[in-house]
C-alpha cells in the first residue's frame, strides 16, 4: 500500500513535471530557428561566414572566377568540391560571379528547389512556404543560352545600374529547400567585397521550419 502510494506519488510528480514542462514549452518551431545549421564562423575555402546575433549567418563567397563554380553545402556552410557536381548531393547551391545554380533540375541530381517570397521581411519569416518552389530548368526561348536558373525566377536577384555599372541586391527573400528536406531563408545583400572588388555575392541565411 505504502509502495503503491509512493508509486502513485512519484507518478503524479513525474506527470506533473512532464505536464508542467509541456505547458511551459513554447512553439517548437522557434526553437528550430535558433538551432542554426552547424555553421562555424570563419572561412571555408572561398566562403567567409559571419554569425549574427539572431542566429543568422552572413556568407560572402569569392565567386570572382568567371570560369569556376563555388559549391556550397548549406548544412555546414562550407565549400565542397564535388568530383562530379552533376551526380553529387554534397552541395546545395553553387555560385559563379552573379550566377547561382542549385543542385536540382538540369544542374544536379539533388532535389534542391527555391521559392521567391515578396513582401515578407527576412526577420519575420519563420516557416517555409508550402509551394512556389522551382529548380533549374533547361534554357527557355529567351535571349540567353544559359539554363533558367531557379534563382532567376521572377527576375535577377540584383539590380544593375547602367551608369555606375554597379550591381545591388534586390530587397527580396528566397527560401531554399535542400535535398535532405531542410529549409533555409536566404537574402542577398551585396556583390562586392570590402575592397570593392566584384564577384563576391553575399547573402544572409538561416534555417526555417518546414511548412
Amino acid at each position: 500500500m505504502q509502495n503503491t502510494r509512493s508509486a502513485l506519488r512519484l507518478s503524479g510528480l513525474v506527470l506533473g513535471c512532464v505536464g508542467s514542462l509541456v505547458g511551459c514549452e513554447g512553439d517548437l518551431s522557434t526553437q528550430l530557428q535558433q538551432q542554426d545549421p552547424q555553421v562555424m564562423a570563419g572561412t571555408s575555402g572561398r566562403i567567409s561566414n559571419t554569425l549574427e546575433a539572431g542566429g543568422s549567418v552572413v556568407s560572402r563567397v569569392n565567386a570572382s572566377d568567371a570560369t569556376a563554380w563555388v559549391y556550397v553545402q548549406l548544412q555546414t556552410g562550407k565549400e565542397v568540391t564535388p568530383q562530379d557536381p552533376l551526380h553529387s548531393t554534397d552541395w546545395d547551391i553553387a555560385l559563379q560571379r552573379f550566377q547561382i545554380k542549385v543542385n536540382g533540375g538540369v544542374s544536379g541530381q539533388g532535389s534542391v528547389a527555391v521559392a521567391l517570397l515578396t513582401g515578407t521581411p527576412f526577420a519575420s519569416l519563420s516557416i517555409a512556404p508550402k509551394d512556389g518552389y522551382g529548380t533549374d530548368l533547361p534554357d527557355s526561348a529567351d535571349d540567353g543560352t544559359e539554363p533558367d536558373y531557379a534563382f532567376t525566377q521572377g527576375g535577377t536577384w540584383y539590380d544593375y545600374n547602367m551608369t555606375t555599372h554597379v550591381l545591388s541586391a534586390k530587397d527580396q527573400v528566397y527560401v531554399v529547400r535542400s535535398s535532405a528536406g531542410a529549409y533555409y531563408k536566404l537574402q542577398f545583400t551585396g556583390y562586392y567585397d570590402q575592397a570593392g572588388s566584384s564577384g563576391y555575392p553575399t547573402f544572409r541565411w538561416q534555417s526555417v521550419a518546414a511548412p
Binding site: 545600374n161 555606375t164 554597379v166 556583390y191 562586392y192 570593392g196 572588388s197
Partner: peptide, 8 residues
C-alpha cells in the same frame, strides 16, 4: 579614385 562598389 573610388568606385561605386566601394573600391578605393
Amino acid at each position: 579614385d573610388s568606385t561605386a562598389s566601394g573600391a578605393v
